[in-house]
Design a binder for these strands. Structure first.
Length: 414
RNA sequence: CGGGCCGGAGUAUGCCGGUAGUACACUUGCUUUGGGAGCAAGCUGACCGAGUUCGAUUCUCGGCGGCCCGACCA
């Protein structure tokens, strides 16, 4: 990808209406565009990051038996009335609208109801279970206060997986697998060492749910972490003594941290299956409600968290696994000169070898190019200047550490 | 949902009840090119509505929009 052909531009100044670091940097670097409060567009570089994250999550969900679907955003009020989640008193973040010819419709904020009903067409016997269904889909939540850039928005893409099991034992076994899959995901996107499995309130479904909380000074949640065991307790259940028994940790060993919730998994039990008639016949022919769980990760929030954790005062810093591209070639030549020709050749070689590379081929001063490169946060910068022409070796600068190495063309392509 | 701050060019600002000024950005040209270059010329602006007034970007009220604190976050 040539930078001269990228329609997005970088900005030197942060926009006046953003305070959160993630939004300031992502807007400055041209990764996102703010449509309105709590509503953001993803531009080419930002979308590449989202797609990297999506691919990692997809691999991990497939690895534990997930089957991918895509459910509608428009929601039939009937099924939400069946679970008593349609009224604004019960769920205060609904976006509701109406059809031209009458009849209400909602914009989905989660998908337990529609998927549970859908599964009644496909599950009738114990032989049909367990099943694990997931999607990446846009959720709409009418937040009274959107805030913190892309961390809490009114429209966002979420990976939501729902598990359908015969009984609690089967559910519990999968729930543990899901925890491991989540740990893999957060490790792979680079925040594994800062992310804690956290006990949180279970809402109306079960005594506890589990959150994945990433320790970060700009986090909105307060958690109490046990570093040795890599576990944490959300402030909301901190006073509950039973939780420590269940976790096998001592309250005295905990220290308070600010954190960002990057994932949340729930045991749902039979609340939805009973309300919507999702049951199966067991081996004895007895009708039994399906035992459910739900497992969510917000893609935008995860991207924002990665920004908050790694960015420095010069700009974004992406771990290689989620970076929009691997290399950033910064050419210090002028169109047509020896340096430019070398940079062009390197770009073509890398591109042809299938290596993801952004090539700053613009006619700008070196200082501006370096500053932009820092802002964009691509992991490895390849500087092509007089040195490269004279020695045949390229200078490789690591964005995160600033470390400088030399490499030959062949090493970059492999 | 309670409370607070705010609304002038893409960004940041000066002055102001009387022709909206400046810097950076942007456009064009020339010179530059290893850390946000220089010169010259040019383009770009008062959220909406009502009221007060000879006159409102400025004052008042309402709306809309934005940010922050708190509450909420299945």
């Amino acid at each position: 990808m040539k930078q001269s052909e990228l329609f997005t531009k970088t900005r030197r100044e942060a926009p006046a209406d953003e305070v959160a670091k993630n939004a300031q940097l992502l807007v400055r670097a041209g990764y996102i565009h703010k449509e309105m409060a709590g509503v953001y567009d993803y531009l080419p570089l930002g979308l590449r990051v989202i797609e990297k994250i999506r691919a990692i999550i997809r691999e991990e969900m497939n690895a534990i038996g997930g089957e991918e679907v895509s459910l509608s955003a428009l929601q039939d009020p009937e099924i939400w009335k069946a679970t008593d989640r349609w009224s604004d008193e019960k769920v205060d973040v609904w976006f509701k609208t109406a059809f031209k010819n009458g009849g209400e419709v909602g914009l989905g904020l989660t998908h337990e109801e529609p998927l549970t009903r859908l599964m009644t067409d496909h599950i009738s016997s114990y032989r049909d279970l367990p099943r694990y269904v997931y999607q990446f889909q846009d959720k709409f939540r009418n937040e009274t206060r959107a805030k913190s850039g892309i961390m809490r928005t009114r429209e966002f893409t979420m990976k939501d997986l729902y598990s359908f099991s015969k009984d609690k034992a089967e559910h519990d076994a999968f729930y543990e697998k899901a925890k491991r899959a989540y740990e893999n995901i957060f490790a792979r996107v680079g925040i594994g060492d800062k992310t804690y499995l956290t006990y949180a309130s279970g809402g109306s479904f079960s005594p506890y749910s589990h959150e994945f909380q990433t320790v970060c000074s700009t986090g909105e949640d307060a958690i109490y972490v046990d570093d040795a065991k890599k576990l944490a307790v959300n402030k909301e259940v901190y006073g509950d003594e039973k939780v420590y028994e269940e976790m096998g940790i001592k309250k005295e060993n905990l220290k308070e941290e600010k954190a960002i919730e990057v994932g949340n998994i729930f045991t749902l039990g039979t609340k939805f299956s009973e309300a919507l008639g999702l049951s199966y016949k067991d081996a004895e022919g007895k009708t039994t409600p399906v035992f459910m769980g739900s497992y969510g990760i917000g893609l935008g929030r995860l991207m924002g968290t990665i920004v908050e954790v790694f960015a420095d005062d010069k700009g974004l810093v992406w771990p290689e696994s989620v970076a929009p591209l691997k290399y950033h070639i910064v050419s210090l030549g002028k169109e047509g000169d020896e340096i430019s020709q070398l940079a062009d050749a390197l770009y073509n070689d890398l591109k042809n070898a299938g290596v993801e590379v952004l090539y700053d081929d613009r006619d700008m001063s070196a200082g501006q190019k370096f500053a932009d490169s820092d802002l964009l946060g691509i992991p490895k910068r390849i500087v092509v200047g007089k040195d490269a022409v004279n020695t045949g070796k390229f200078e490789i600068v690591d964005r995160a550490s600033g470390e400088v190495n030399k490499a030959e063309r062949a090493e970059l392509i492999s």
